[in-house]
Design a protein around this nucleic acid. Structure first.
Length: 814
DNA sequence: AGCACTAGTTAATTA
DNA sequence: AACTAGTGCT
């Protein structure tokens, strides 16, 4: 179906231009950012400066004043969640006029374009999208084939390098041109890259980076195709511009270029009416561009974000206007002072100082734990206190640098019966059983994809092992056809009768279901003759039933398989939900949606849980109270960043992003020892801590001399918890020379290893108990039912705690 | 040939 | 803790 352009220019309304409501409550800079009209605009928006509001009102203004049709607007955000929020807010202002705008992420905008245009360059519109796990699996095969480990390649080094090249719009040929062929490792890499690229195109698949890169390629190779989009999108707005990489930057450039007169002629003769858009020379002028960003929040250099894109915006887009938003509407002045002080240590940045008029607020609270668990306990205690003061759990968040840090936090949160959720950790769609079920869907959507086919060939077990798979693949190679064809023709391979039967059965299940995916040729929705395309949920259910997928899981004696079966059922529910929200949604639409969900997207604000997430995930979010944890050398800044140019500066920005997420309360914590990979290391306070003016922090427990005197002094602080398990173990760990690994691991996992079941313990208010870590105390209240019974206990020395009775290491005294 | 179990190895941030 | 290689059984 070809693209239907808007050929009529909307008429600017003359009845008083701008709706006053659009400008209400804005400061002068914000107002200017909403009202400015011109070719290019850069809004430098500090953290919490109301940029989303500005952006949405700017869009609403364009629509209300009839300067643009909705279909002429393209707004790009970094997460689907941000896109949904923006759509919602524009909708609130202008109502149904918001329909037809493209508000989406870079990736989903590119998928839409690629699905439409894929046929131009050797793909079909049913292409699949390889997520990072898929492309790693593919690379793993390639590395094995080539025995590339001999040259020091690992899956992650190869995928990192390929991703980096793609983000710079390099392909195999351009890389080969600059390659050093006397270096065998480089020759090997070139071969890896070549095979990887070939495998993708043979599978009719794009990886994540391709989505952007191939769209740029498409525009450059097919000017008439590009002209369609350049003509359509007259106003392009990009959020989080500081995090764009070179490919994304180029995409924006391609979209905002003018259309040359001769190309415009061509478009016109092909039936696209463009007369009204042409200027006096016959060209179509470039679209207007608005970008919003903050170079102080650029934290994605590791995936190719180039801070220069925003720094050099004015050079790239001549005659652009720059507007600075510095007034912050989110945080207290104390928090902003800390943020300003920290970020001012980054040199070569444009000076920018956030300010607010909501007052100084509370001091930042600092805490140094003896271990990661001790730190987590502090956090749990403070969360409980704040909850008692009336702050909802959903308004509190805990940030950390690495996902591994969640373990200690989760353990303590479970013990303290705090409701929490981890954002972006092991995601639903990354679970093996979900990936298997998804692979079934992909196999019927895109029969050329061998990766999906291989994944499910023996799931559930059908006796098709590696040897059989290799036989199928060689048959396919020998007959120059696909793996799927080999499966169909398994009878000709001369394999055993049992396996052959299984393979043919497997193949016919896929073929049968695939036949239902698209509507029959004689389908007529008005008369109801023929057969409509099957619903996504029905496709999935058919596959699961015919293959006995769930049945097999349920029959397994592995207890975890029951949970896996439930997860698969959950996926069925997801497809039903999808179909409800998108009545006309196809299988491809579903697969696309799933492959594009990002970590920050599955955030559900309504639930009453504390949110745990990495600092990266936290960008763009805000909370009443924020805990910044693990503020230690080698963690923040992370050890791995030390070698990279600009690494420490980027880590500082990460810290800055964390600080500026907090509205009222900010807690900064660290630990003196931290468990990693089974052993325990002494940790040093982060250098960034000293960059916060001392009078802004109130230390509940300061790192003291830990920094300057190398770890002997801080144990004086241990006096507080004499005889406690953690304190004494710490002493061992810090003082003991290496060589007694057994004892070390024993205590590193101590918290997990304590398996107990106190379900039968009768407790009521007034009882006295003894806790192995906190000592003696009195129960003040018992709430909850069954396994979720919680005791509130006032300890004599350790203060008040909430304990999950079932697993708490406690006993009654007297 | 494939499966299940065990033992041994090796561990590298951030979406 | 999570993956790989090796073993013995069907």
């Amino acid at each position: 179906m070809s693209f239907v352009p808007n050929i009529i220019e909307p008429e600017p309304s003359d009845d008083g231009a701008f709706d006053d409501a659009l400008l209400r409550g804005l400061n002068p800079q914000q107002r200017e950012a909403v009202e400015f009209r011109g070719q290019s605009l850069l809004i430098v928006a500090g953290a919490g400066s109301g940029k989303t509001s500005v952006l949405t009102r700017r869009i609403a203004g364009l629509l209300q004043s009839r300067e643009a049709f909705p279909s002429q607007i393209l707004a790009i955000t970094f997460t689907n969640k941000a896109a949904a929020e923006m759509r919602e807010r524009v909708h609130q202002i202008v109502g149904n006029e918001a329909e037809g705008m493209w508000i989406s992420t870079f990736h989903s905008a590119c998928v839409r374009i690629l699905r439409r245009e894929a046929e131009h360059f050797g793909f079909t519109k049913s292409f699949t999208i390889y997520d990072s796990a898929d492309s790693r699996a593919l690379l793993k095969r390639i590395l094995k084939e080539l025995e590339a480990d001999q040259y020091g390649f690992t899956v992650s080094s190869a995928s990192g390098k390929i991703s980096k090249l793609k983000n710079e719009l390099q392909d195999v040929e351009s890389y080969a041109r600059g390659a050093n062929f006397s270096d065998p490792a480089e020759v090997m890499f070139l071969e890896i890259f070549r095979r990887y690229t070939q495998a993708l195109s043979k599978a009719n698949a794009f990886d994540f980076d391709d989505l952007i890169g191939q769209t740029v390629y498409l525009f450059r190779a097919f000017p008439v195709v590009a002209a369609h989009y350049r003509r359509r999108f007259r106003h392009i707005l990009v959020d989080e511009y500081q995090d764009t990489n070179h490919a994304q930057y180029s995409l924006i450039h391609e979209l905002t270029r003018p259309v040359r007169p001769d190309i415009a002629d061509e478009v016109e003769s092909a039936g696209g009416l463009v007369k009204t858009k042409r200027d006096s020379l016959g060209a179509i002028p470039g679209a207007s561009l608005t970008v919003v960003g903050d170079s102080d929040q650029s934290i994605y250099a590791f995936r190719g974000a180039d801070i220069r894109n925003i720094v050099e915006f004015e050079r790239d887009f001549p005659n652009s206007k720059v507007i600075l938003l510095e007034q912050n509407y989110r945080s207290t002045q104390n928090i902003l002072d800390a943020a300003n002080a920290v970020i001012s240590n980054n040199f070569d940045r444009k000076d920018k100082k956030l300010f607010t008029d909501i007052g100084k607020g509370n001091k930042i609270v600092g805490f140094t734990g003896y271990s990661g668990h001790d730190e987590a306990q502090f956090i749990a205690d403070e969360i409980t206190k704040m909850h008692d003061e009336g702050i909802a759990y959903k308004d509190m968040a805990v940030f950390y640098r690495t996902n591994a840090q969640t373990r200690a936090l989760e353990e303590i949160f479970i013990r303290s019966a705090l409701p929490y959720r981890v954002l972006g950790g092991t995601k639903f769609y990354e679970r093996a059983e979900i990936k298997d079920a998804m692979a079934y869907l992909i196999a019927v959507a895109n029969p050329s994809d061998p990766l999906a086919l291989r994944r499910i060939m023996n799931v559930p077990k059908r006796g098709i092992g590696p040897a059989t798979e290799t036989a199928l693949q060689s048959w396919a190679d020998a007959h120059d056809t696909s793996l799927r064809d080999a499966v169909r023709n398994a009878g000709e391979l001369g394999l055993g009768p049992k396996v052959t039967g299984e393979i043919l059965e497997f193949g016919s299940i896929l073929d049968e279901v695939m036949a239902t995916v698209t509507a029959s040729d004689d389908w007529d929705p008005t008369t109801g003759t023929g057969r409509a395309a099957a619903k996504v949920s029905d496709i999935l259910i058919a596959l699961l039933e015919k293959t006995k997928f769930v049945e097999t899981l349920r029959a397994s004696r592995d207890a975890q398989d029951e949970a896996r079966a439930e997860n698969v059922e959950e996926l069925v529910a997801v497809t039903k939900e999808f179909q409800k929200n998108n009545p006309d949604g196809t299988l491809l639409d579903f697969l696309t949606e799933v492959s594009l969900v990002a970590a920050a997207d599955d955030l559900d604000d309504s639930s009453g849980t504390v949110s745990l997430m990495t600092l990266h995930t936290a960008k763009g979010l805000e909370y009443e109270a924020v805990f910044l944890t693990g503020v230690e050398e080698d963690l923040l800044p992370h050890r791995m960043s030390a070698g990279e140019p600009g690494g420490p500066a980027e880590e500082r920005r990460l810290f800055y992003v964390g600080i500026t997420r907090a509205r009222q309360r900010l807690f900064i914590s660290l630990a003196m020892t931290r468990a990693a990979y089974g052993n325990v290391n002494v940790a040093m306070p982060s250098r960034y801590l000293q960059e916060i003016p001392a009078d802004l922090i109130e230390w509940r427990q300061s790192p003291g001399m830990a920094n300057s005197r190398g770890g002997t002094e801080p144990r004086a602080l241990n006096a507080r918890r004499d005889g406690s398990a953690w304190g004494s173990s710490l002493r061992e760990a810090a003082a003991l020379p290496p060589g007694k690994p057994k004892e070390k691991t024993q205590w590193a996992n101590m918290v997990t290893n304590v398996v107990r079941d106190n379900s039968a313990l009768e407790l009521s208010a007034g009882d006295r108990i003894r806790h192995t870590d906190f000592g003696e105390g009195r129960v003040t209240a018992v709430t909850g039912e069954g396994a979720k019974r919680v005791a509130e206990v006032q300890f004599e020395t350790a203060g008040r705690k909430r304990l999950l009775i079932k697993i708490a290491p406690i006993e009654k005294v007297e």
